[in-house]
Design a protein around this nucleic acid. Structure first.
Lengths: 229, 229
DNA sequence: ACCAACTACTGATAAATGTCATATTTTTAA
DNA sequence: TTAAAAATATGACATTTATCAGTAGTTGGT
């Protein structure tokens, strides 16, 4: 099974591209590959992480449990993204759980390899920093969206987000199928509210559905809805 | 007026403490000091920043305007914090506005000085990275709070936050006085809702007020309220 | 000290969202 | 394949929050 990091295309999308040949070799020698089925967890909130996970395939939700027992999904991480960086860098237990929302293949890289490179290779550190700066901006946007947009707007936005980030299958459905509950947890609303609004979108002809699958029929109107028209 | 960065205690609180004597000297030579009165802005959303601001005194709100014309305050930055780092690092225009909520004294450090040090001093980069990792965690917490807690809980939390981060004056009022509108923008709600809930807290004896000033009377009950009792 | 402008407050009402109960459909696994 | 379990769907209703309208109180500038 042994693919070498040096040859892995995935790393072009993340901060590992700033590593030297030598460093990549070290990563490759210390990494382990892991297969996860949908629903399995990479780690749970509060866990101490011994390394980071580089996603080769599939999608993971990063979520946090709130006092009232509901999960809030903070980010969906897919191919090329590195999960767990924040906790390893801040040397804290993780504040999020990571659960596969589709079958996944990930590489585990021990934290020593990462921290060692962080101390030796300023380009790598800077690259990680840039990624984190980007994540922070996205988080700020999410805060503004959640507090200023209606649930309807946020659901429309989530549907467009899923299309733009994960694409559509041959039948015109979103390639990443989330349960209604997951959608409500992305958006930060009650599951029933999400379901109701999705039904409404369907009645209005903005989307079509089949089981839990959703397909976009009128992208422009969905976009208008996001902007508040 | 020329105080030297080498002697500035403020920098102990931020990533500048990882700079060498030499680098600090360079910062000191390139920096300019700026005084802001309450209400004045450091920069506006969309501006291209030519450097970062190190807060010596006072507090600034970092906020983002939403489509419906309301500001969402994403962070309050005070003594020791560096504002504008994210945009400079990501080499993007800023996504936030920074406006003084009290009189301020800040040092402006040109971005060349920062980016130069980022490339040369891995310890500094790592330190900045750690700070950003921390900010990102806080942002995640805000997302969960906003979407899962009621307005009442969030206002109680905001009041406690103001006490814990900025302290109280000799009369037992919060040392940082925000307008009701600013409070509503921190919490992500309508100004009238914030006012109504603050009045309710007062009637219940959780707080006392005098004009726009708020003082905590029953911290425990406020805390219970945050947890949802 | 006084006026204008701003900010805080309150009530009435509307709109959005959550909750609970229950029916229906889809998925899962024996 | 089929029964059980899980997820989706919908209605009725409760609760929360926003909006609009108007009054009272505070503050800063002359």
């Amino acid at each position: 099974m042994e693919s070498r990091c040096e040859n892995c295309i995935i790393r072009q999308f993340n901060s590992l591209r700033a590593m030297s040949k030598e460093e990549l070799k070290q990563v490759s020698d210390s990494k382990t590959t892991k297969i996860l089925k949908k629903g399995e967890s990479l780690f749970e909130e509060g866990d101490k992480l011994n390394g980071v996970y580089c996603v080769r395939n599939g999608v993971s939700k990063l979520s946090k449990l709130s006092a009232n027992g509901k999960d809030q999904i903070v980010k969906l991480a897919s191919k090329g993204e590195v999960i767990g960086q924040r906790s390893v860098i801040a040397q804290e237990n993780t504040n999020l759980s990571a659960i596969a929302v589709s079958d996944m293949e990930v590489c585990f890289i021990p934290k020593e390899t990462i921290t060692h490179t962080l101390q030796k290779n300023p380009n790598f550190t800077l690259e990680v920093l840039r990624h984190m700066a980007h994540d922070l901006k996205e988080a700020d946007d999410v805060i503004v969206n959640i507090s200023q947009k209606t649930v309807k707007q946020r659901i429309a936005e989530a549907i467009l987000y899923l299309k733009n980030n994960f694409g559509e299958d041959k039948d015109g459905f979103l390639a990443l199928t989330l349960s209604r509950e997951d959608i409500s947890n992305v958006v930060g609303t009650a599951t029933e509210s999400a379901i109701r609004i999705i039904s409404e979108f369907k009645k209005k002809g903005l989307i079509h559905t089949s089981g839990k699958k959703i397909g976009i029929k009128d992208e422009k109107k969905l976009q208008d809805m996001v902007e508040g028209f």
